[in-house]
Amino acid sequence: MKKIFTLLLSVLTVGSLSSAIKLDTFPDINPGEHSVVEFKTEYGFNDVWGHHANFDLGATIPIHKHFDLIAGAQFSTANVYTLNVELDTKFLLTRKHHRELYFKSRFMPRFVVRSEAVEFNLALGLGYRQDYVNIMIGTNIRMMDELHRKEGMHLNEMIAETFYPAYFLEVFGRPIDCNWNISLRMTNLGDFQIERMWNPIFSLAGRYDPADHWRVSLRAECKPAGMFNMTAGFFGVNVIAGCSYTF
């Protein structure tokens, strides 16, 4: 297990550093990012947790002109608590159409108290963003364990799943600098959940900037089960409303 952690940490560090080195070879025409704080409330329903509500807090902190640190926490009435830490390395290729390349590394521990379990997710991805599309491919690994390991259960194992492909595809209706936009998204990387590759999360989202610094957003997510089984069925939905303030 230590080897996996070391490997991932090395990939993350080397990836970030190599990106940083490459960044300086490209014209950076969009320096000086801003900090963002956001708050979201969610209504959720799925077959096993039933109806529940989630409250999300998040912040994006630019630590360098090419690096953003994103941190967030989610509290769910389903008795599930999730933390999310991301390091985004990005650089703008051209201002026209806002062409941007980014490298994302993510760590997401999730404390499923209701089921006495804890999971640790690590995800890495390389993405490309422009006006109408945001696409990312990468990989993720999940480790699961009991929240409180009982003595004498020496046969029990911490589950380390194999590396799964991670993907993110979002198509926008309008250019990035418009004060409102709508989008369709398919991914296995949610804001506070990381699914296996064959359980995609579909979203329809919209955002509006009513004033300087302020943004409101609304998103509906649907998670089917068994799509890759050729017998798809409903599993759960989320409706997420939020607002953010940019400093």
Binding site: N46, A117, E119, I194, E195, N199, A225, F228, G236
Partner: peptide
Amino acid sequence: ANYCVEEIYELTY
């Protein structure tokens, strides 16, 4: 494709 993660935690519990 296997279960969504929420279901895995609920079933194992």
